[in-house]
Amino acid sequence: MVEDGEIVTLIGSNGAGKSTTLRAVSGIIRPRAGQVTFRGKSIDRLPPHKIVQLGMSHVPEGRGIFHRMTVHENLLLGAYQRNDDLSGDLDRVYGLFPRLKERLGQPGGTLSGGEQQMLAIGRALMARPTLLLLDEPSMGLSPLLVETIFATIAQIRQQGSTVLLVEQNALMALEIADRAYVLESGVITLQGTGAELANNDAVRRSYLGEE
């Protein structure tokens, strides 16, 4: 359950089903049981491109950059469903990630991991999503870059998007999240506000690395 304008995070260990949950939400796979509803509409029978049309953007695990296409083309692909003027949106993405502007003509595959993550998030924003799904945006990034990415996520929410964040870096995720769910073997075992879960003993032991 994600409300308008919040950041909700889904935490859990490896193999708990976090990415699978996101893939089911965006329509890449079909849920075997349960329902996915978006703004009151059941979407679990819809193909992914129809779900994008409804206003959901998914930054997949591994970032999903098109390596043979340029940074600019990757950004344009993010806005595939739109037919209006994109210059304002491109400027907004360059504002969030000035690095991308320097690399516009370069193939996506030549970017560093951090730049690819910026491109993946920027590309998702090109669709002007009402809901942004982020899968492990901190994966493989230096601590400094992780800070930048999380600051950007907070900024994106301020600009009016809702964010569903899947993270292994539970500490960072709980810090910026309004609410959080803990997923274990595909089942939600705990839920609460970000602060509540950050102070929960079980969560601290299992996910925040405390004895």
Partner: peptide
């Protein structure tokens, strides 16, 4: 744009569909 969509599908069908491309 059509060509961009085709090239995206050629790289990855799943990721292309997440861009809103009808694969």
């Amino acid at each position: 744009k059509l060509g961009r969509g085709i090239r995206a599908v050629a790289e990855s069908r799943d990721n292309a569909s997440l861009m809103g491309i009808d694969v």
